[in-house]
Computed example of a mutant assay.
Amino acid sequence: MSAGDRKKTACVTGGNGYIASALIKVLLENGYAVKTTVRNPERADRAGRPRDSERAEVVREGGGGGEARGPPDFVGGLCVVTLVRPELQGDGHVLDEEPWSDVEYLTGTKSGLWAYPVSKVLLEKAASRFAAEHGISLVTVCPVVTVGTAPARSARPSVLNCLSLLSGDEAAFGALRAMELSGMLALVHVEDLCRAELFVAEEAAAAGRYLCCGLNTTILELARFLTEKYPQYTVKTNLLFGELLEKPRVCLSSAKLVGEGFD
């Protein structure tokens, strides 16, 4: 078999997750064979792929991983970015892939959702060190708050958080407010995110980190959008109290991704 005829293979960890299930669907639609790991293979119908697909294989996580090995063209893994930097005062800040959340500040203050961005920074930096030590080409896609429909039967918290303006779930809305403390509410649609990961996987020149952000907005702007777009539902205005941003003070830029040809 020539290199040009070789079947494309991808490995996606946590295949029954919200984003992973959508990614598996996109990969299958684009001709990839997919190996995915889940905690319970007997519930493989939750892994975001048709049961009768001959190009999808599900194996158990934590079982040694032997079945999932092989020469995949890329490994699907996503690191959700939540940038927290205390020195960003005032308005008009535009952040790209260079800055990281301030781990020392977060671990020192332990305020809000501090553990989440800390874990993501430590995870991505550990993966980068491992790749460098073993000669692996690592390209990282860093999405923001991800929304939209995916094959997984349960939505990730970010979807429930954004829908809290309609559901009235106070705990989910509280998490949404905590996200906005970084200076904006940054959103991306799950379909755009999966297309972006496929794009950088197939782009020979792709390297390093890529932010994937479709919209920088605020809770108030989101509430106004939902009120205008879906008047048949009622935005729970009782949640909109206290100090909320009118406009984003900070914006996350996907200029690197777009500059390399992604739409």
Rank of each mutant, 00 (worst) to 15 (best):
Y18V: 08
Y18M: 10
I19M: 10
A20S: 12
A20P: 03
A20V: 04
A20K: 01
S21L: 11
A22E: 14
L23F: 13
I24P: 02
K25T: 12
K25A: 14
K25G: 02
V26F: 09
L27H: 08
L28P: 11
L28D: 07
N30H: 15
N30W: 05
N30G: 12
G31F: 07
G31Q: 07
Y32N: 05
Y32Q: 08
Y32R: 04
Y32A: 08
Y32K: 05
A33C: 02
V34N: 02
V34D: 01
K35I: 09
K35M: 05
T36Y: 01
T37H: 01
T37P: 00
T37D: 00
V38A: 12
R39Y: 00
R39H: 06
N40D: 13
N40Y: 01
P41S: 04
P41K: 02
P41D: 03
E42R: 12
E42S: 15
R43E: 10
R43T: 06
A44L: 03
A44M: 10
A44R: 13
D45L: 06
D45P: 01
D45T: 06
R46D: 03
R46F: 01
R46A: 05
R46W: 03
A47K: 01
A47W: 00
A47C: 11
G48P: 04
G48I: 05
R51F: 03
R51Y: 00
R51G: 14
R51L: 15
R51W: 02
D52T: 12
D52A: 09
R55H: 14
A56M: 04
E57Y: 12
V58K: 04
V58C: 05
V58P: 04
V59I: 11
R60G: 00
R60P: 03
E61A: 08
G63I: 03
G63D: 15
G63T: 13
G64R: 07
G64F: 11
G66H: 05
G66D: 12
G66W: 00
E67W: 00
E67V: 07
E67R: 07
A68H: 00
R69A: 14
R69Q: 14
R69S: 14
G70R: 11
G70L: 11
P71T: 14
P71G: 10
P71Q: 10
P72Y: 10
P72F: 09
P72G: 07
P72E: 06
D73E: 06
F74W: 14
V75W: 01
V75T: 13
V75F: 13
V75Y: 07
V75I: 15
L78Q: 11
L78F: 14
C79A: 11
C79M: 09
C79G: 11
V80D: 04
V80R: 06
V81K: 11
V81W: 00
T82F: 14
T82W: 13
L83E: 03
V84I: 14
R85I: 15
R85P: 12
P86G: 08
P86Y: 10
E87N: 14
L88Q: 01
L88C: 12
Q89T: 15
G90K: 00
G90H: 06
D91Y: 06
G92V: 13
H93M: 09
H93P: 12
V94S: 07
V94M: 04
L95V: 15
L95D: 03
L95C: 14
L95M: 13
D96H: 07
E97N: 13
E98H: 13
P99C: 13
P99W: 12
W100C: 09
